[in-house]
Design a protein around this nucleic acid. Sequence first.
DNA 1: CGTCAGGTAGCCA
DNA 2: TGGCTACCTGAC
Length: 272
Amino acid sequence: MTPRIRIHPFSLRDTLECGQFFRFTKIMDTYIVQSSDRIFSLWQKGDFLFYEGVEEPFLIHFLRLDEELNPILKEIDQDPVIHQAIQKYRGLRLIRQDPWECLLSFLCSSAKSIPHIRSMIEILCKSFGRKIFYGNIIGYGFPEPFCIKNSLQLESVRAGFRTTYLVKVNQCIGRDQLLAMKSLSYQEARQSLMRLSGVGKKVADCTLLYSLDFLEAFPIDTWIKKGLQRAYFGGKRTGEKEMENFISNHFGPFAGYAQLYLYHLWRNNPPC
DNA sequence: CGTCAGGTAGCCA
DNA sequence: TGGCTACCTGAC
């Protein structure tokens, strides 16, 4: 019998498709997922998550299945807007990505649409990653730290001005240093990340939330900004600092989960 | 052809 | 702090 895990609440679809993670493809009801140098498949029926090509401990870590979701949702359920998002997408979970892959992925993301980001990452993997197999499907692992040496090697990635970001970050930091940031405070870790070329608040917060367990991180992109302005500030233009203060006061230490739900809500139902 | 897209860096008030 | 612009590239 195919191995499976019982989880509740859980929505594989919302978890993968809410924008926090890029390397998956959907075939019928099955998702082929790639992360670092793994390739495996996942599908869901009711409360059961079926999996193939991967071990259970990795999945539990990757999908944070040992984290009680309902208490967190209760904690952030502070107003009618977030309440609606929670009702609609309950089961959407934060993914714990590899920090190196996460950082580079979001380094590619600035001023690009999701299909473009996907394409850049895919070419990066094809150029630098090792071949990996799942049945007769061939995939490519994510490039390891320090393997991108200069911008010439990135020509085919067509990353534009992000090319220098990728090269510089490859010179400056590796996976261990990123993981070590877990022991810092949120502000310290954020500042450290922002010293890297191409890493501003948004990319730093994505890395902190999606890969380093800083659940208070709340990445603010243009969609979230528009939505927050309309939903919480009466449509008025709002200063960055005021917005940050509101978020941490209103949603608290699990604000990152609120970001996930609100982002998903506003991507599917644009606030403008 | 112009505009714009999940942002950042650099410069200025 | 807040506001502005250029930056590569590809799609509408």
